[in-house]
Amino acid sequence: MNATAIVFYALAGLACASAFMVIWSRNVMHSALYLVPTFLSVAAIYVMLRAEFVAAVQVLVYAGGILVLFLFVIMLVNVKAVQGARLRLHGAVSGSIGAASIALLLSVYGRGRILAAAPDGGKLTEFGGNLETVGWVLYNEYLLPFEIASLFLLVAMVGAIVLARHKA
């Protein structure tokens, strides 16, 4: 086993163990905080895949933004009243979502798309680096999804304001 494999398995193990603690922990605040090692080790795996930009976005958006959002949601909801109630339904819903995600991952893996997308040093240096590669691909090949993303952001913005300020 070479060094890359050892580092990968260490990071993957950390991500899985901490993700397990997210669902295992009884305190919902601890659950949210256990997401931090998961996000950071996934970011480190992105770095190993030579996707430095994705890693930076992962830390910036997930570890920095989404997690704060989770903490705010926990702090504004009366957690004690919610805990224990309707857990059976939640378990069924989240279980089927999890099973569907695993099935999707396995089918993508089965078609060899993950291996096909494995880092290719030649293609990366063609444009100058990771960020340039992302830029060229995003703003040429995936232009329409990129512009649609702005619409998604707009909808999320309006939705958040409508939901949070409907009394005003």
């Binding site: 910036l60 703003y139 958040a160």
Partner: peptide
């Protein structure tokens, strides 16, 4: 709930900024 709204708006503009980085390079 205002904290939540500020956090949502922060993330949305954060993502917008993240899209600017690759664009600035090319």
């Amino acid at each position: 709930v205002r904290f939540y709204m500020v956090a949502v708006l922060f993330i949305l503009f954060d993502i917008e900024t993240a899209f600017l980085y690759p664009w600035a390079m090319v």
